[in-house]
Each structure stands twice: as C-alpha cells, then as structure tokens.
Design a protein around this nucleic acid. Sequence first.
DNA 1: GACGACGAGCTTTTT
DNA 2: GCTCGTCGTC
Length: 775
Amino acid sequence: MNNYIAQLNESQKEAVLHKDGPMIIIAGAGSGKTRVLTYRIAHLMQQGVDSFNILALTFTNKAAREMKKRIAEIVGQSEAKNLWMGTFHSVFARILRSESEKLGFPSNFTIYDTQDSVRLLSSIIQEMSLDKDKYKPKQVLGRISQYKNSLITVKAYYTNPELLEADRMSGRPKMGEIYKNYVDRCFKAGAMDFDDLLLRTNELLTRFPDVLGKYQDRFKYILVDEYQDTNHSQYLIVRALADRFENICVVGDDSQSIYAFRGANIQNILNFQRDYKEVSIFKLEQNYRSSQTIVNAANSVIENNQSKLDKTIWTQNDKGDMIKIMRTLSEGDEGRFVASAIFEDQMRHQLSNDQFAVLYRTNAQSRAIEDALRKKNIDYKIFGGLSFYQRKEIKDTLAYLRLILNPNDEEALKRVINYPARGIGDTTMNKLTVAANELNKSIFEVIENIDVVNLQLNTGTKNKLRDFVLLIKSFQAEAQTLNAFEIAELVLKKTKLVRDIEKDGTPEAISKVENVQELLNGIKDFIEVQKEKEEDDSLAVFLIDVALATDLDNDKDDKPRVSLMTIHLAKGLEFPHVFIVGMEENLFPSAMSMNTRSEVEEERRLFYVALTRAEKQVYLSYAQSRYRWGKLVDCEPSRFLEEIDEQFVQQIAPKQPQFKQNSFIDSDIFGETPPETVRFKKPIGVKRKEAPKPIKKASPVQGNFKRMHQVKMDIPEGPFATKLKVGNFVIHGKFGKGEVLAIEGNENDQKAEIKFENGEIKKLLLQFAKLKIVN
DNA sequence: GACGACGAGCTTTTT
DNA sequence: GCTCGTCGTC
C-alpha cells in the first residue's frame, strides 16, 4: 500500500507530494485527476494529517463515495472515516443543520427541491395577482437562483439600480417583491432551497466569526474537485474557509466547464492565481484514457474556443479506430442504429454491455434509444431523468415524513393535507393561506390555532383540520421512539396512502405501490449502512440525503448494462465505447444556447466532454428528422461535426435494406414523412454499387443536406462535390467567404482546401462543410 | 369538494 | 407526444 507513489507519472507525483500552500492542478480529460486527488489525500494522512482536518468537495455524491472508497483502500477504513467528503450542497447542509438556529432556522429545516420551489413561486405569483405568462414560475426561479448564487440578497437587489432596471426592461418590475415574498415564505416554512444551502452558509460564515473560526481551524486542508464548475457563492465559501491556512488545492479543467447555465463561473479557475500569492501550478496533460484519435479529435474541436487556459493534451495510447459518423432517418432509426452497432460490436469483439454508453444532450432523447435496445434485448440503465424521489407517490410519502420533522414546511403540507382525500379543499386552503400571510405564521400554526383565529369555516371543516393536526402530532410523538423505517411504515398504515393508490387498479398503480415499497426498503438500507459506519441514522439525515440525491444507485442486480445518460451526467465517467446521438443543429448545440459566442463555446466544451469519455471508439449519429414537441421536424447535422479534424472521422452508411421500399413500413416516420424526405433517400441506396457490407462509406450527397445547400436542390443527379472546382468562391456559415484552393480525396470522401477572408486556410470535408457557391 | 375532460406549454443541461 | 393545471359537472 505504500507503493502508491510509484504508480504516478512525474507531474502527478509532484502534485501529490507538494507540501502546504495554495495550489492548482489543471487536469486535462483522462489525465488521472481522481487518482491524484485520492493519492494526495491519502498521502496527507500518511504524513500525519488527521482525516478530521481534511475537507474534500466533489461535484457529485457518487464521485465522493468512490473517492472515499479508494482512499479507504490505501489508508484503511477506520482512518478514512472522519474524512469530510461530499458535494458542496451535502457538506454544507450538514454544517447548517448544526448551526441553523443561529440563522433563525430550525435544525430540522426542510430542503426544497426545484419542484417545491416552483410550486411555492406559483402560489406567490397567483396570490400577488400577477400575470402567469409574464412571470413564469420556472423562469422566476431561475432569476432568483442567479441572484442567490451571486450573493444578491433581497436588500442588495433593491439597492442595485442595474438589476432593477434589467427586470423592469424585461417586463418584470415585480421581481423584487416576488423575491422578497419567496425568501420570507421559505424562512417561515423553515425551508432552504438548493441555492440557500450555499447562500446561508455564506451568511453563517460572515455573520458569525466564531463559527467561521471553528471551521477554519477544523478544515486545515481543503481540496476542491471540478473547480471550473463552482459558482460565486461556492467560491466565497472556499475562500473564507481556506483563509487561515491557505492549504487549498483546487483541481479542474477549464475545457470541461459545462455548468455556466446554473451560475458556474469559469473565472474562478482562470483567476485562481490572482487570488492567492505564490500559487503552485501543476498541469496534468498526459491522457491515459483515450486513443490518440479520440484525444486529437477532441483537441481539434476545443481549438475552436477562444477563451481557455494554455494546455495540450496528449497520449501515448494506440492510434485507435476512426470516429464514425452515422446519418439516420429519424430518431427511431437512430435508436436502431445504436442497438445494432452495439450488437455487432459485441459479436465481433466479445464485449459486455457495460462497455457501452449512449450520451445525449437532453433527457427526452432517451426514449427512442430505450425502445431500440429493448427490442434487441440489450440490458440498459438510465441515469438521471425523473429521479425516483421525484415520483408523485414518493414525494407524497416523503411529505408526511417532512411534516413530522418540520410541520411548518408549507409545500409538504399543501401536498398531503388533502391526500388521501379528507375533505379539505381549495377554498379552505385559500382562507388558511391568506390568514397565514396576514398573521405571519405558517399554515400549520394557523390550523393549530383554528379556534382562536376567526376564519369563516364551518364546524365540519374545522374538525377535519383539527384531525389532521392531531394526526401529524401523533406521528411526531411516535417518532421519539421509532426509527425512520418504523415511522414511515406507521405513516403509510395510518394515512392509508397505499390503499388510496391501489384502488385505482391500473398497472401504473401497481408499480406505484412497488415504488413506495422500494422507498421503505431504501430507508431500511439507509439505517443499516449508517449504523455500520457509525453515523447518524435519523430520519432528518435521511431526508437531507434524499433531497440532494441525484444518481439513483440501482446497481441492485449486477447484470452488465449499457449506460444511458445526458452528457452532463457523464462528466467524470469513462467508457470503452461511446455513442453520442442527436448531433444536430438546435439540439446539440441546443437551440437555447446559440445566441452568443460564450453559449456556443459552452456547448462545444460539452461536446469535448462527451468525446473524451471514450476510451476506444466514438460513434456520432444524427437524424434527418425528429419528433420535437410532437411534431416531425427536419434536422441539419451539427456544426460540431465539421469542427472535428477530418483526418479522424469516417462517415459510415446505413445497411442497404433500410432503403428498400418495404422497410418504411416499420419506420417511425411512415405515413408522416413529407414526400421530399422520401425522395431524397432513394438515390443514395440506388446509387451504391458495392455489395452491402455492415459498414461502408456513403456517397457525399445525402438527403438531409437539402436545406443547408439550396444549391444542391437543382442537381439531384450528381454529387455536389463534383460541381465545386478549384477557383470557386464559396460562402461558409462560420468562416465567411473563401476561395477553393484545392480539392482532394475520392468521390466518397472529398475535402476542399479553402482560403477564407480572414486569411485562414481550412480543409473541410464536403459532406459537412456548409458551403454555398457564389460564382 | 371530487372527478374527469381538455388544452397549454413544453425540452437544455443539475445540486 | 407527454404532463400538468384549469375548468365544468356531479
């Protein structure tokens, strides 16, 4: 176990062995970052640093768990136990739990998830009689989230003329008022939203110097992973805590910053050297994960970004296979391509399912892939999407548990006060809400005092309300002696919640009941695990875990499965074979992120992240048409496809039978296909002379390009490429006007060397270059 | 107040 | 195409 140093390369070793003081590790994709972090922590401990004094902040719970496991393997389970390691949110949620009363929050404060926050904002907007279309709850929440992440409190908001003006200009002059109400209501409910966990931590550390001092002393060594994705609020917490010892080690890669949309500030990593004196800088540039082809292709893509730190990723690995690009007809067709490619690779190379991952830009894309995999009997697992804990039946059950710990939790109360139905309807709730606002009390407190408060409610309703309060209070009394599992069981029995679900009798109802059962099992597991680790197994801690849970670890069965997830979720993971699907304009890059250069650059970094997940093989696919919002729309190939240096890519074509007339019958788009889409498909299949092979090169002219080059519409007979001659002037969507200097390659794979107005000479693959001839 | 039918809006990504 | 919220009826 002492031999761990020997497993490191020179720069990794330096980073691990570096002594005290601020340091930054710029770690390229696949450069052994996790290894350096874990070894560094283990090394600190072997040098005599008490694990109690180390704080390691990771980006996901999963990363924390894995790292902790690996550290335990080096230093031993009992040594690693005191190590404080987790996400910003979970670490500071726990700290806040023991300090929250200083801020006026109960120690059993609730954590509102996004859904809770949106619902609360909806009611506030409604109560204020504002236009729901101008003040869309989700957007309002996004705005408030921005304020909070920038540490703009309600007070700061009102003294900031620019913000006031910006919101007024965007037609939302009441933003400040909504913000204030939202914060007040959360406070009254004893609830913090995700952003509050950071904001309130900052408040705690600023307002209470003794508390700050306590944690500064405790966390003598602080390590932050994925530093490029920290927001301002997180940045300030780290700065404050590290201020005493300055033993701060941040690890990150600016090229993998993909969370600007939720306030991540890439400047945090770019400016780290300015924040501290005498920063030691380490660069990990050797990639151990991917083939040369993949590393170089990814480099050629990220080259297109202007703002980045100077580093060059290289690898000694084999050259590896070309990146394969596949055009498909529809999302269903794309799914079938993925499924059969996985099937064929498995046959050819004896690979198991867990060697494959399918990555996509949006969760909605998973459906088509799932269908295709299921038809081919390929086991898969989906990460993300609607999490287990967000299902209605689970949230309802959890709402009761939340109420037991914190009866002021308004969102939990509204969820279950009339579920299962007990005759407390909207009218009553409206009266209660108005009263609660007027009296500055929570709804639960109003109900507790229902006999004192003069609300126009009839006796029957009052009795029902009293019964509800009594029910919750009886649970609270029982919770004194019962553990989390027993209390959950009791709640389900007393409220008859399961029976209410069952009476539906539908197949969905059965699965819902199973889910509730699964939740109970989860609570049981939780108690056992916590006991084993000698950690707090209270209901309160369970609810914190649940609120911040993301990756459901349904690794229950150990069957190898194909992984399906968004690219965001794939960060930090690696797979031998990776499919990146939906490589289309408006999807990737997303239509919402094409307005500014920096938005497109973030999308490009996202593509970079996707590419660098792969060890051996990357497949890129796009569909010519796809259902979006229930409508079939035509799609163009993504601009990112042409940004990959063409020497690393290879266009592959679908199998012949796909184009036979009868194959349209089982195609998704049969019957809905606009005539011209069909017309464009035929020539390709007909033109091919070679015998159909599993994989072969395609003709340069392909149906879907009709919209990109109107020119081609007139010449359906011959390939566009043959029309282009040396000396032609062309217009390119990104590079502008240019002159064709040379054309090379065979008919199937033609490239043109073009000198553009800005002086740059580019070699473009004619299949992807969006060129228009102007002379 | 409960329940079913209908329509609007939605899809960017997550703690 | 799906989900959530609103509206109308009982």
